[in-house]
């Protein structure tokens, strides 16, 4: 038989815990007309919310 299950599945999903001020720090650096390109901000937000450090222990 072919065993297709992946037993050591570490996909457990927990909501990210990020202090709101961390997000504010990203956006409140300059007036809207002097902000870095939106793509750059996107990568910074992604880093903040998806880095492994942001996922708490179960």
């Amino acid at each position: 038989d072919i065993d297709m299950t992946d037993r050591v599945d570490d996909d457990a999903i927990y909501p990210a815990v990020v202090a709101p001020q961390r997000l504010t720090e990203l956006f409140d650096t300059a007036p809207s007309f002097a902000m870095p390109p939106v793509e750059e901000l996107f990568y910074q937000v992604t880093k903040l919310f998806t880095s492994k450090a942001a996922v708490p222990a179960p």
Partner: peptide, 21 residues
């Protein structure tokens, strides 16, 4: 124009974050 998109994206992102909290 970039300033409008920056303003909207920042406020929307922070507001969604705040609303989730």
């Amino acid at each position: 124009y970039p300033a409008l998109i920056s303003l909207w994206s920042g406020i929307m992102t922070e507001a969604v974050n705040g609303m989730l909290d």
